[in-house]
């Protein structure tokens, strides 16, 4: 597979390490009243869709950036790739 890095252009997926669903960015607020429930869902439950999937890849053999890759899990077609840091900020992570 090839991942089109937003800064570096197309790179073989072998340079990357995969983590999983991009919802891993959404670490819950530990002070929420239902934090335990939220962390359980965050830690363990996945949509695991057959189709478009936003997922985290780490360019370990490259610039060390984490990317959010939107990829189809049936065709493997990559729709777009973003820097995870930008995504996390856009999601409003506060620190």
């Amino acid at each position: 597979m090839i991942i089109k890095h937003p800064l570096l252009g197309p790179r073989d997926a072998a340079e990357f390490v995969y983590l999983g669903d991009a919802s891993m960015i959404d670490r819950p607020n530990p002070n929420a009243p239902d934090a335990k429930e939220q962390f359980y869902e965050y830690g363990y439950l996945r949509d695991n869709p057959a189709g478009e999937h936003k997922e985290l890849w780490y360019h370990e053999q490259g610039d060390r950036s984490w990317l959010v890759v939107t990829r189809n899990t049936i065709t493997h077609e990559v729709k777009y790739v973003q820097l995870a840091r930008d995504v996390a900020r856009a999601k409003g992570r506060d620190r």
């Binding site: 983590l19 370990e60 950036s65 984490w66 840091r85 996390a88 900020r89 992570r93 620190r95």
Partner: peptide, 19 residues
């Protein structure tokens, strides 16, 4: 060594991206 570095980068870029 490699795994911790990866985890720190994850924390830095994805969990606390404004630090």
């Amino acid at each position: 060594a490699v795994l911790v570095f990866r985890k720190l980068e994850f924390a830095r870029q994805c969990l606390w991206p404004n630090l």
